[in-house]
Amino acid sequence: MQSTPIKLITASEDAFSAFYEREHDGQVRRAYLMLNSAAAAHDVVAKAFTQVLRRWSTIDEPGPYLNRCVLNGCRDAGRRALRETAATDQVRLAELDGDEPNHQDPTLGAALDIDLIDALRRLPFKQRAALVLRYYGGASQNEIAGSLQCQPGTVGSLIHRGLAALRTELA
């Protein structure tokens, strides 16, 4: 009688560990693209995994749920930073983290499209998220809609407007 729940828990933990291994790095990179802060990205992803673990036994599709948790975390982290920097008119998140490799590193400068990354960072959250999901990882329209909790039709509009804004900024 006692062995069954123990086995179940072990199997569940194994499954979560495998899920963590599979998803972690990609989620951190994606969060980093949204926040441009390594520390914040790690924080958001760690919290998101905690949320998933808490509901591990009840969610059917942990992947999409994790995506939503990470994006919600990015939105909240960005909103918090925005508030805190509002009075200084420095709403860019770029300089929040000085300890990571970014475009300050001259050896990376040639490879990184600084203007484009900066322009991306200035987009509204949903446009930025839609572009990151589409062009980093190649998520489908339905997947993006699920992650952003919006209608699939909105995704096309977000991407279209996001790209248009980038073209304008970079013209």
Binding site: Y32, L112, L116, Y135
Partner: peptide, 9 residues
């Protein structure tokens, strides 16, 4: 750009 930026973390 996203690929380059993502690989830098």
């Amino acid at each position: 750009a996203l690929e380059s930026q993502a690989s830098s973390i």
